[in-house]
């Protein structure tokens, strides 16, 4: 079966310094693929390449059998790839509700949106997702006043409002408490029913909890891929990555 997202022989260098070196990845629909690897391995850069924030030096990215390499960020997002950033990026000056409204991007046309004053379908979805993310009480506050954990959840909720087929989550539980991490894990398992997820994470406990497939990146290449059990038993992975982790 062909994967929903297929990355083939991706290369990227910045000013001649290679960061991604022939990385390939195939992600099957309705699975959770966790990407792990030491700092600077190129995980975020890979996300940048998939979502069009950076253009690859060479290689291709296919999404649902379509070549999306080199498309603009918004074009890729419209095809159904949503992204949460490593450094949480929400609109701090807007209220939580407004953040979610912005993310609801069924209609993206600027001129048509001049005549949109909130629609019922959007409101229903907003309430549903806010409840899922425990943000119902916080809908009217400015997003800039949220705690770190709430901000992470708000950004995940925004990605959900987009209604994407694939969610790319870059370190979704960084800086969260144990309890919040467990809740996030539950949420992700729930999302797996309807979506495909790629999760970049350092927290191996969390990865163990959610991952169907684990991909280990090292110096811009794929070091190993398999189930969590296979990865944890892999000597080379232990050497370059797991050995250096506290978890």
């Amino acid at each position: 079966m062909a994967g929903l997202l297929e990355i083939k022989d991706l290369h990227k260098s910045f000013d001649g310094t290679p960061v991604i070196n022939g990385f390939s990845l195939e992600v099957t629909e309705m699975t959770v693929c966790c990407v792990v690897g030491p700092n600077g391995a190129g995980k975020t850069t890979t996300m940048d390449l998939i979502t069009g924030r950076q253009k690859p030096t060479s290689g291709t990215i296919h999404f649902a059998e379509e070549d999306i390499t080199g498309l603009g960020e918004h074009e890729i997002a419209r095809r159904g790839i949503g992204r949460k950033f490593q450094v949480p990026a929400v609109f701090r000056e807007l209220s939580v509700r407004q953040n979610l409204e912005v993310a609801y991007s069924k209609q993206t046309n600027a001129l048509k949106n001049m005549f949109v004053f909130g629609d019922a379908a959007m409101k229903r979805k907003l309430d549903e997702i806010a409840a899922l993310a425990n943000l119902t009480e916080r809908l009217e506050v400015e997003a800039g006043t949220l705690s770190h954990g709430e901000t992470q959840w708000l950004e995940i909720s925004m990605v959900l409002m987009q209604n994407p087929r694939v969610l790319l989550l870059d370190e979704p539980v960084a800086g969260l408490t144990e309890g919040e991490i467990m809740k996030t894990a539950r949420l992700i398992k729930q999302l797996k029913e309807t979506n495909t997820l790629i999760v970049v994470e350092h927290d191996m406990g969390f990865v163990r909890e959610i991952a169907d497939v684990v991909t280990v990146m090292h110096m811009g290449t794929l070091l190993a891929q398999g189930t969590i059990g296979e990865i944890e038993a892999n000597d080379r992975v232990r050497e370059v990555y797991l050995g250096s982790e506290e978890h």
Partner: peptide, 9 residues
């Protein structure tokens, strides 16, 4: 930049 990743031009 964030708005772009939500699918808006």
């Amino acid at each position: 930049e964030r708005v772009r990743f939500l699918g808006y031009n």
